[in-house]
């Protein structure tokens, strides 16, 4: 947290802002900022890099991927543009809609508010990595069963938020589900079916 304070003192640079706010997604862990700001061995903290592209390795959905990215790339840009994992959606690009929610070391974060280079050796899970060996996650099945998609653009973010909720809280109430998805914006209005699907998936997992 000390690191964060330093950065905030400098004013609201994008980098500082991103570091502070990168984990404020989906409502689940709203106060746990600064997780990515802690130094990890593999994250590029001490030496100067950029502005040109640099090579980094990133563990995405259980595989180590080599990426060539500009240091200013967000995690969302890196996933979408560099390794074509376009399930992670970019909508507001400022942490207001959670369409880009992915998990970093099992914590849901806004990928648009997280620098790719800050991921270091943490494990990234995207919507494409949620199914295991071709078997859908119960939340994904429930979204199909209860028609929790319309246009589908918010769906990956909704699923990453609700799947994380079920991990933390296997017996959620409706209020818990609303809380977990309170940062996820859906213009089509799929919310009622998202709530239904999440509660149904929780029952099924039991």
């Amino acid at each position: 947290m000390k690191d964060d304070k330093k950065i905030i003192k400098k004013g609201v640079s994008r980098r500082g802002f991103l570091k502070g706010a990168g984990l404020t997604t989906a409502g689940t862990i709203v106060l746990q900022t600064g997780v990515l700001a802690k130094t990890k061995e593999n994250s590029v903290q001490s030496k100067t890099v950029g502005p040109g592209p640099v090579n980094v390795e990133m563990n995405v959905n259980g595989k180590t991927r080599s990426l060539t990215i500009e240091p200013r790339s967000t995690l969302a840009q890196a996933l979408r543009d560099e390794i074509q994992l376009t399930g992670t959606k970019m909508v507001c690009d400022r942490g207001a809609c959670s369409a880009c929610t992915v998990w970093v070391d099992d914590i849901p974060v806004n990928a648009c508010m997280t620098f790719a280079m800050d991921v270091g050796d943490r494990k990234v899970v995207t919507i494409e990595g949620l199914a295991e060996n071709g078997k859908l996650h119960p939340i994904q099945e429930a979204f199909i069963d209860h028609d929790a998609t319309q246009c589908g653009y918010c769906t990956p973010g909704m699923i990453m938020s609700t799947a994380h909720l079920l991990k933390e809280n296997p017996n959620p109430t409706l209020e818990d589900v609303k809380h977990a998805t309170r940062g996820n914006y859906c213009r089509c209005g799929t919310y009622p079916h998202v709530f239904k699907a999440t509660l149904a998936a929780a029952k099924k997992i039991k």
Partner: peptide, 21 residues
């Protein structure tokens, strides 16, 4: 009847215009 393209939407496989490269 279940939405036919829901599978693509819940797995992130659905490619929107903005996703196409």
């Amino acid at each position: 009847v279940k939405r036919l393209d829901a599978y693509a939407k819940v797995t992130g496989e659905a490619r929107y215009t903005s996703d196409i490269q």
